[in-house]
Computed example of a mutant assay.
Amino acid sequence: MSARALEALQSADVIVGYKTYIDLIKDLIQDRKVISTGMTREKERCAAAIEQAAAGHRVAVVSSGDPGVYGMAGLILEMLEARDQLKTTPVKIIPGITSATASAARLGAPLMHDFAVISLSDLLTPWETIEKRLVAAARADFVIVLYNPASKKRDWQIKKAREICLYYKAPTTPVGIVKNAAREDEEIYITDLSGMLDYPIDMLTTVIVGNRSTRRVEGFIITPRGYVL
């Protein structure tokens, strides 16, 4: 959590968010009003936040990581635009620490060169689109960060993503797997494309697949920027 995000939480009258994320900050909420809903009810949460703001409250809408990276910032702005309230409702997007950079810090320096971030969740994006992006990123030799890689009901996408990566990348390409990055019960694994599916991967996991220059050194993953040593 960034310092500005903490300040925003402490100054808010109303806190709105997915119930799992609210649980993560329950020690910071104290006696503030909380509005929380479950998975797939993002529009309902954002509508409630807008209504609270229109009533004069200072509202903090909570996202995991950074609100502008697969978070609620875009939906809030879109809904305010649809209601013609963007000009009358003051909005501040407070940057956070997304799991790509949090996980990268735990692994070493895998994102020192160009990288792509791709979510494997097909709830809002058709799999055909996701697959095209995976192919493009792998073919261009980007380091690839995979969000939402697998769940109990959805585990074939990470297998397909690995298959695509193996078509364009060597089986020895370093892979970093971080679960609960910078949270309690954090788990860190460093492996390669050939062995990545031997490790636990779920919705709380971020997977970073290296490029052809990425290497493993003394427990770290490094993607060289190209400096002459």
Rank of each mutant, 00 (worst) to 15 (best):
M1Q: 12
S2W: 02
A3V: 12
A3D: 14
A3R: 12
R4F: 10
A8S: 13
L9Q: 04
L9M: 11
Q10P: 06
S11L: 12
D13N: 14
V16F: 01
V16M: 02
G17E: 01
K19C: 04
K19S: 14
T20V: 14
D23V: 09
L24E: 14
D31A: 10
R32D: 07
K33S: 14
T37K: 12
G38T: 11
E42G: 07
E42F: 05
E44D: 13
E44I: 05
R45L: 13
A47R: 14
A49S: 07
A53I: 00
A55Q: 13
A55C: 11
G56C: 00
H57I: 12
R58D: 11
R58P: 07
A60F: 11
S64F: 01
G65P: 02
G65I: 07
Y70K: 02
Y70A: 07
M72Q: 09
A73E: 03
G74R: 03
L77F: 02
L77D: 11
Q85S: 14
P90Y: 07
V91D: 06
K92G: 06
I93K: 05
T98M: 04
S99E: 00
A100K: 01
T101K: 01
T101R: 05
A105Y: 04
A105M: 12
L107G: 06
G108P: 09
L111D: 02
H113Q: 08
D114T: 09
V117K: 00
I118R: 05
I118H: 06
S119W: 00
S119F: 00
T125M: 02
P126Q: 05
E128N: 03
K132A: 01
R133C: 01
A138N: 09
R139F: 04
A140Y: 11
A140Q: 04
A140K: 14
F142I: 01
V145E: 08
L146K: 04
N148L: 07
P149L: 02
P149C: 07
W156I: 13
K159S: 10
A161Y: 01
R162S: 08
I164R: 02
Y167H: 15
Y168G: 05
A170L: 13
P174N: 08
V175F: 04
V175Q: 02
G176Y: 06
I177A: 02
K179Y: 07
N180F: 04
A181Y: 06
R183Q: 09
E186D: 05
I188W: 03
I190C: 00
D192Q: 05
L193C: 10
S194D: 13
M196E: 03
L197Q: 11
D198W: 01
Y199Q: 10
I201H: 03
M203W: 02
M203N: 12
T205L: 10
T206Q: 02
V209I: 15
G210Q: 00
T214D: 06
R215H: 12
R216S: 13
E218A: 15
G219P: 07
F220R: 14
F220D: 10
I221G: 00
I222V: 08
P224D: 13
G226D: 11
Y227R: 12
Y227G: 13
V228R: 13
L229C: 09
L229V: 14
